[in-house]
Amino acid sequence: MQRVTMTIDDDLMAALDRYMEAGGHQNRSEAVRDLVRAGLSKQPKSDDGDRHCIGALVYLYDHETRQLSKRLTHDHHSHADLSIAALHVHVDAETCLEVSLLRGRKSEVEHFARHVIGERGVRYGQLVVAPAEAHSVDQGPEGRPRHSHSHD
C-alpha cells in the first residue's frame, strides 16, 4: 500500500467524517479509498471518447481565490469550440455557481470539465453528459446550428 498526504479544508473534512460514519467505515482511509474507487468507476470508456455529446458542467467556486476567475474565463475562451452557453450566479459573498453547456467530442468535453473542476478554488463540480449525434447541419447567423421545429 502507498501512503498519501492530503490537505482538505474543514468543511470537506466534516463531510468526509459524516460519509465515513454513515457508511460504517472504520477510518478515513477506508472512506477515501471507497470514494476514489467510485470516482474511477465513472471514468470514460476508451471506446466512446470520439462520440459527440452535449454536457452540462456545474461547478461552485470561491471567487476570492487568487486569479481563479481570470483562469476560468481564459479556459472557456480557449475552448470556445466546446461552449454553447454559460450561466453565472452569485451564491453568497464568496461563492459563485456556474453552469456551462458544452458540445463536442465526449473525450474533449470530459477533459475540459476535469480541468475546470481541478482548478484550485473550485469547491464542487459535476459533469452530466448526454449523447448527441454529429450531423451536417445548416448554420445560423452566429455559426450555431439551425433547427426546423418550432417551440410553441
Results as ranks from 00 to 15, higher is better:
74 H>S: 12
40 L>V: 11
79 H>K: 07
67 Q>K: 13
62 D>G: 04
40 L>C: 09
60 L>K: 02
82 L>W: 02
34 D>R: 04
69 S>G: 15
80 A>H: 09
55 G>V: 03
66 R>P: 00
71 R>F: 03
46 S>Y: 10
61 Y>F: 15
67 Q>D: 14
27 N>P: 00
80 A>T: 05
56 A>M: 12
74 H>A: 14
12 L>G: 00
36 V>N: 00
46 S>T: 12
12 L>W: 00
37 R>G: 00
33 R>W: 02
38 A>Q: 13
50 D>C: 01
70 K>M: 09
36 V>A: 02
50 D>N: 13
69 S>P: 06
74 H>G: 08
25 H>L: 02
76 H>T: 12
81 D>L: 14
84 I>R: 09
64 E>D: 11
46 S>G: 11
16 L>R: 01
54 I>G: 06
37 R>L: 07
35 L>D: 01
12 L>K: 00
66 R>E: 03
72 L>Q: 09
22 A>T: 11
74 H>I: 04
20 M>N: 06
69 S>R: 09
36 V>D: 01
65 T>A: 08
41 S>C: 05
82 L>P: 02
68 L>F: 08
34 D>F: 02
24 G>L: 08
43 Q>C: 08
60 L>P: 01
17 D>K: 04
66 R>Q: 07
60 L>F: 14
35 L>H: 00
45 K>S: 13
20 M>E: 10
19 Y>M: 11
37 R>Q: 08
70 K>S: 15
46 S>E: 13
43 Q>P: 00
45 K>E: 13
81 D>Q: 15
33 R>T: 07
43 Q>M: 12
37 R>Y: 03
